[in-house]
Simulated scan of single mutants.
Amino acid sequence: MTSKNDAQTVFVIDDDTDVRDSLQWLLESVGLKVQTYENALAFFEGFDTGSSGCIVMDVRMPGLSGINAQKKLSEYNIDLPVIMISAHGNVDMAVTALTQGAVTFIEKPFDDQVLIDHVHDALEKDRARFVQRLSQSRIRERYDSLTRRERQVLELIVKGLSNQEAADELGINRKTVEGHRANMTAKMKVDSFAELVQVAIALGLVKGVAKP
């Protein structure tokens, strides 16, 4: 039977061979796919853009530390949840990791089930991010299919203008606006004004609407 985690990978980055092997065995024992790296640079070089999953990374490593590697993730277009682990953790280090976006900071030695639970939570966050990115991508594709005039009508309507007010703003007649609005609604695949507003917000066209 196929696991829902088959498409996701847990990327373990730790300079300690025993820790890497131990984490790999633990995570694979609960059906997770694992790839291990001895340092962050090896991970960056081996990472397949578009991969999904999460990162379990040691804070203290020779060369590029976990904290500094975390800062560089965006440079490599890596947007995965990060779980930081450390045998020498301190409050400042934990705060830095969490402020930079780590989902949690775990001190060694840790309970196996605690780590597994955090990894599952991180994978769930990754799935949610993927769905959101996919949704936004589809919305953008639909918006790009609109004509210039349909985009103008969309932006005016979601800002609260009536069909007549939009027509006056654009210097065209109301029937023409109604036609553009019908075409635009069909292309955007929305069934109500509320859905149209949500689409406009997702596209960054408006921050709020004055009236329905």
Rank of each mutant, 00 (worst) to 15 (best):
E155Y: 07
F130D: 05
Q152V: 10
F193L: 06
V177M: 09
L154C: 03
D191G: 15
E169C: 12
K187G: 01
K187Y: 01
G171H: 05
R140L: 12
Q164Y: 08
R127I: 03
A122C: 01
S145H: 09
I139Y: 03
D121L: 12
A186L: 13
V158Y: 10
E178Q: 11
L115T: 12
R149P: 01
R181N: 08
L123I: 03
H118P: 00
K159N: 14
L123N: 06
I139S: 00
Q113T: 12
G160A: 03
R149I: 08
A182N: 14
Q164V: 01
R174F: 02
A128C: 10
M184T: 09
E155G: 05
T147E: 14
F110R: 08
R181T: 06
V153W: 00
K175H: 13
G171D: 07
E178P: 06
D117C: 11
L115D: 09
Q132H: 10
S145D: 14
A186D: 11
N173L: 04
R149V: 08
K125W: 00
K125N: 02
I172F: 08
L115G: 09
D117F: 12
E165S: 14
F193T: 08
T185E: 11
R149H: 05
S145A: 14
L134H: 04
N173A: 09
R181Y: 07
V131S: 15
L123A: 04
R142W: 00
D191C: 06
S137M: 05
Q132N: 10
T185S: 14
R148T: 11
S145C: 13
M188T: 02
A122N: 00
N173V: 11
R142Q: 12
K187I: 05
L146Y: 00
A194K: 15
E178G: 05
I139A: 00
D126Y: 10
A166S: 11
